[in-house]
Amino acid sequence: MTVSAQDTRTDRLIRFVFLAAMLIFFALPIIYLFSTSFKTPDDVLQGRLLPEAATLKNYPNAFAHVPVLRMIWNSIAVALLSGVITLVIAVPATYATIKLSAFRKTVPNITLASYAAPPIIALIPLFYLLQTANLMDSVLGLALVHGLMNLPVAFWLLKSFVNDIPAEIDEAAWIDGAGYWHTLFAVILPLIFPGILATALICIILSYNEFLFASALTFSEASRTITVGMSLFQGERLVNFGQMAAASFTGMVPIYLIAFLFQKHLVGGLTQGSIK
């Protein structure tokens, strides 16, 4: 056996052990959640990984206790709508800031600062704004808040994609007679489409998982999202972990499906600009 072959085998073993450890680390909570969704309250108290006597009752009970499917639907609607709102604002804003140098020095800093600030600061103003706009307790109102909330993330993700397009491409379009909007739609959008897709996915996931604004700005079945729904399983003295796990697992499915189906674009979006 050659030295290099031995090295390769050792390398492979190290890689396997490392990846197995990472897989266990990340998969364990999901496995535990899945297992808990089949546990009786007694089993939950035992704290074992697998249920002693598995039950399927948690699922119908959870669905009966809280309108889980309706809430998942609300979450999906809010997430998709907010994703659209974010992109409609973020794409032209990023283009104008990066390529047309509109407030190029201030906008990136302001967006970063606004994202770094604790979101609770905005809660009361947003509450009154939505009330005034008659959008309180509505899917549209929450989507608007999430859409605006995710703007800084979208800006910073799109920025690297827009930056990667050589300035001469824009300039060639301008010389060809295309206005700034025409250039954005006919030249830039097709070129940064992978970035737009990745940004949309990330914003949708962020919106789907958001709790603070959803809990404060929605309170009826018609608009409450699944993250708020989870908290309804928590009684004053007792938490029904089995039902909560069943609802959590069901609520996780759409977002995991999105992440699974578009993981290539997600990784592309998050690593853009990191390697030249």
């Binding site: 050589p166 001469e168 300039e171 060639a172 301008w174 010389i175 295309a178 206005g179 030249v187 097709p190």
Partner: peptide
């Protein structure tokens, strides 16, 4: 006038063709 209104043609160093 902005470049759009000067009715010029330009050949760039890196060609600046529209890749898509």
């Amino acid at each position: 006038l902005p470049p759009q209104d000067r009715d010029l043609s330009m050949v760039f160093q890196n060609y600046a063709l529209y890749p898509h």
